[in-house]
């Protein structure tokens, strides 16, 4: 990675207290000691199964959830009480569900204009309208549709409105939390292309969270794989897909159904046994050991740390 670092996440933790008895709570370790960096203009993909903590990572970075421990350094400054306001303007989020993430009582112009008001970015009413029109044009929505409400749009169009809103405050970093998962295949490609265009137009950095591995591979320059709150492997996109070393990544990649009948017949799926353990009752040592075919007694003792296996390629496994 050659780009200067824009976002640095250091030992980030986020625990949620869960009531497990009368006057007793147990911490649910949704994100447990996660560190990585994102360069300027770079896209870091974050993949993992539901409940692995990938969305929590995104939201904790933005301080939508208060981190339990660890810090986020944005453009050289630690995000904290003094810098949060500025950070919130420069870092934005696009949510997964284009239906519940837009206020049904606001017109599109007001939805997109809200970040402008909050950050006091426009001095006059006219300037605001002009900026909203420009933002909507950027995402391919015509200005005649400005006075409509969210329910009048299709899923793909709503997602475009969500993106326009994220762009309103001229951010440098956007957390994309499964932004195309709810969309149909033919629309998905439109939105993915738009993310790429916006990135080159505005020099944006993305944290692209998704569970669809082919989409993540397509859009990301580097990819981090999460399992039960931990990052188990992180590498360049092509490197990860060709030379995955962590047993979880290997089985995850082999489980992706390929749209090619001949290869599907020839390929061998590595089917993982069982389900993901509950994050309330984490296995000791390596979180993946309960489903891992290579697990040994050693794996139950200590939690493996990320170690470099090739330049720019880190994995957390004791059996490597």
């Amino acid at each position: 990675m050659n780009e200067p670092v824009l976002v640095e996440v250091k030992n980030l933790k986020r625990y949620f207290p869960v009531n497990t008895g009368f006057l007793r709570t147990t911490p649910l370790k949704a994100v447990d000691d996660v560190s990585f960096t994102i360069g300027r203009g770079e896209t870091l993909g974050l993949v993992g199964e539901s409940g692995c903590g990938k969305s929590t990572v995104g939201r904790t970075i933005l301080h939508l959830y208060k981190p339990t421990a660890g810090e986020v350094i944005f453009d050289g400054k630690t995000v904290g009480p003094g810098t949060i306001k500025e950070f919130r303007r420069r870092a934005q989020i696009v949510f997964q569900d284009p239906y519940s993430s837009l206020n049904p009582r606001l017109t599109v112009a007001d939805i997109v204009g809200e970040p402008l008001d909050v950050n006091k970015l426009c001095k006059t009413r006219k300037e605001r309208t002009e900026r909203v029109r420009e933002l909507l044009a950027t995402v391919g929505i015509s200005s005649e549709q400005m006075t409509r409400y969210a329910h009048e749009f299709s899923g793909g169009q709503r997602q475009r409105i969500g993106i326009a809103r994220a762009l309103a405050s001229r951010p440098e970093f956007i957390v994309c939390d499964e932004p195309v998962s709810a969309l149909d295949v033919s629309i998905q490609a439109q939105v993915v292309n738009m993310f790429e265009d916006l990135q080159s137009q505005f020099g944006l950095s993305y944290l692209f969270i998704a569970h669809d591995l082919s989409v993540v591979k397509h859009i990301s320059s580097r990819i981090a794989v999460m399992y039960l709150g931990h990052i188990v492997e992180i590498a360049g996109a092509n490197e990860l897909y060709r030379h995955a070393v962590h047993p979880y990544t290997v089985s995850l990649l082999s489980a992706v159904p390929v749209p090619d009948p001949e290869r599907a017949r020839a390929s061998h799926r590595i089917v993982l046994e069982g389900d993901v353990p509950s994050p309330l009752h984490m296995p000791s040592g390596c979180p993946f050991r309960t489903r891992c075919s290579r697990a040994t007694a050693k794996c139950a003792e200590s939690c493996p740390q990320l170690e470099e296996v090739a330049p720019g390629h880190m994995a957390a496994c004791l059996e490597l």
């Binding site: 149909d184 295949v185 033919s186 629309i187 490609a189 439109q190 993915v192 292309n193 082919s214 397509h218």
Partner: peptide
């Protein structure tokens, strides 16, 4: 044909731009 073109391939190392189906359903 459009559907096949619009899904990203997991094997390609080259970054090829997706060819979406334009318009809405």
């Amino acid at each position: 044909k459009g559907l096949m073109r619009s899904i990203p391939s997991i094997d390609d190392d080259e970054h090829e731009r997706l060819v979406p189906i334009l318009g809405t359903p």
